[in-house]
Amino acid sequence: MSARDDPQAVIERTSPPRADADRPASERVVERVAAAEGSDPARLEGRLYDAVDADGLDALVDRGSSDLAVEFAFSGYTVVVEDDGPGSVSVEVTE
């Protein structure tokens, strides 16, 4: 059974390596949703900026807060972005 067939399946939850920590959270979200789809980020059916203010998301993550949790729907998935501590943001993608 693929993750797409199981709506409760967590597709991916990652804390990026330190080198990844300098990349915008919005970029990481697109990459993780594309990975869940088995697709290239440019081929996703939706655009991130139609789902969430990408600049605002990046600004929230850059500010850093242990209370940060942003949830939104994007390209058929539920995305949760959380601050896991200095330089570490997790992106959870579920269907």
Rank of each mutant, 00 (worst) to 15 (best):
A9P: 11
A35Q: 05
S39E: 13
D20R: 11
V52G: 05
A25H: 03
E37W: 08
T94I: 09
D55G: 12
R18I: 10
A73Y: 02
D62M: 09
Q8S: 12
R47Y: 03
G56Y: 09
A9D: 13
E82C: 03
A54W: 08
G56K: 11
G46R: 01
E27W: 05
D22P: 04
G87T: 04
D6F: 10
G46M: 06
A35G: 08
Y49K: 11
E45G: 14
A21Q: 04
V52T: 00
P17Q: 13
A34M: 00
L44G: 04
L57N: 11
D53P: 04
Y77L: 05
V91Q: 06
A35S: 11
V29L: 06
E71I: 00
R23Y: 12
P86L: 07
F74L: 04
R13L: 14
A9R: 15
V61H: 02
Y49E: 03
V30P: 04
V91H: 03
S39M: 01
S88T: 13
A25T: 09
E71C: 07
G38L: 14
E82I: 08
D67G: 07
V33Y: 07
L60G: 05
D53Y: 08
G64N: 12
V91M: 10
A42K: 06
D6Y: 14
Y77M: 03
V61D: 02
V61G: 08
D83L: 09
E45F: 01
L44V: 02
D83T: 09
E92Y: 05
L60M: 10
E71L: 08
V80P: 05
A73S: 08
S26G: 00
A69P: 02
V89P: 04
Y77T: 07
D53M: 01
E31W: 00
S2E: 14
E92P: 06
E37C: 06
A51Q: 05
G38H: 12
D55I: 10
L48F: 09
P86F: 07
M1F: 14
G87M: 02
G56Q: 12
S26V: 09
D40V: 06
